[in-house]
């Protein structure tokens, strides 16, 4: 039984069959040695691109189908009925399944705030949304393993709950632009009117839309991953990000925060870093920094909140991500 599960995991999630096929192609088709530098890069690139696109399509499809049951209006209603830490926790959990892109953060922020949801709950949601989604969990399991994937989710949720709660405690309600509170609340909810065919069409549409939006990031991410994997000297990586360097997590954060990429583009970079001996915490910090904080979403948020609140948000998330990196690095032996 155990063997069957391991086999399923290797073939379905890690796609060992694909790796073997690509090895055949690179070795016999291109005449390159996959253990060599060029052959290894070509193998990493082809295998990772195909694997990520297969997983991405299947995952987005199934997740979008679930998401169609949780439009933001419904999420807001569910959150409005809860209080305290429990509301933050539910917000963080719903953040993992609500459709999200940086372009939707403003309407969500205005919609939640004008309906009277506390800032604490709204920010728990805003932190968890880009950071933890179901697709990234399964991808993490595919690239690393299940215990790392689960640890990532739990830590991401804790960061969202604590970060949101802290922002709530600081009483920064006056740091939200006034017009936000005056925005009307539209409560029409056509959730019940959606047929299964519409949900399937919606899920299909999400796959093409998201694949269309992220394919370039995936190619760039895998390209960088392949470069890290085989071309950048080991000494350079370990000097900057090595496990014994106390600054590795800080470097990963500073490099990651301004970067803007989808989690699908970031994973191959993290994968290659870990394969080159970078600490797991450092790699996860980099991923979280890229996905949770990005320049475009900051610029968007600046239109609805005043600078002090934005600074507090960025500060709390950054410190949280750095702490997570150090904790993971210190405990990585438990997960591998």
């Amino acid at each position: 039984m155990q063997e069957i599960i391991i086999w399923l995991n290797d073939q379905l999630l890690r796609m060992q069959w694909l790796s073997d096929l690509v090895t055949l192609l690179v070795r016999d088709g291109f005449g390159l040695d996959t253990a060599g530098r060029i052959g290894g890069s070509v193998h990493f690139f082809i295998y990772d691109v195909i694997k990520i696109f297969i997983l991405l399509s299947v995952l987005i499809f199934s997740i979008s189908y679930v998401q169609s049951y949780f439009p933001p209006e419904r999420t807001r209603r569910i959150l409005g009925e809860r209080q305290g830490l429990w509301a933050n926790t539910v917000a963080a959990l719903l953040g993992t399944i609500t459709p999200f892109c940086s372009c939707s953060s403003i309407p969500l922020f205005i919609g939640f705030t004008s309906a009277g949801l506390p800032l604490a709950v709204t920010f728990s949601f805003l932190i968890s949304s880009p950071l933890v989604d179901l697709a990234s969990v399964i991808l993490l399991a595919s690239i690393f393993n299940w215990s790392i994937a689960l640890a990532y989710v739990v830590i991401g949720l804790v960061l969202a709950v604590l970060g949101g709660t802290l922002i709530g405690r600081l009483r920064l309600e006056d740091q939200v632009e006034d017009f936000v509170y005056q925005s009307p609340v539209s409560d029409h909810d056509n959730d019940g009117a959606i047929s299964r065919r519409e949900r399937l069409a919606y899920a299909m549409g999400q796959v093409t839309e998201i694949a269309g939006r992220v394919w370039l990031y995936v190619l760039i991410g895998v390209g960088i991953g392949a470069a890290i994997h085989n071309w950048i000297p080991e000494g350079f990586i370990s000097a900057l990000l090595g496990q014994d360097k106390w600054w590795s997590v800080l470097v990963a954060t500073i490099a990651g925060v301004p970067m803007y990429a989808d989690i699908f583009g970031t994973l191959p970079i993290a994968e290659a870093l870990v394969q080159r001996g970078v600490g797991l915490g450092t790699a996860l910090t980099f991923m979280m920094a890229v996905t949770a904080l990005s320049l475009p979403s900051m610029i968007m948020l600046k239109r609805v909140v005043k600078l002090p609140l934005l600074a507090v948000f960025i500060g709390i998330v950054t410190v949280g991500i750095i702490l997570i990196g150090y904790i993971f690095n210190a405990t990585a032996h438990l997960f591998v």
Binding site: P71, P72, E73, R76, P99, C103, S104, I106, P107, L108, I110, G111, S114, F179, S183, P184, V185, S186, D187, H188, N190, I194, E198, M300, R303, V304
Partner: peptide, 27 residues
């Protein structure tokens, strides 16, 4: 404009407004 859109109280696009009344969003 994303802020003008949010001014109608909707949280997912596209939205449809007839005579200033929101009749649909996200579909």
């Amino acid at each position: 404009d994303i802020i003008a859109i949010a001014g109608y109280g909707i949280m997912s696009t596209p939205g449809l407004v007839i005579n200033e009344k929101v009749v649909s969003s996200g579909r």
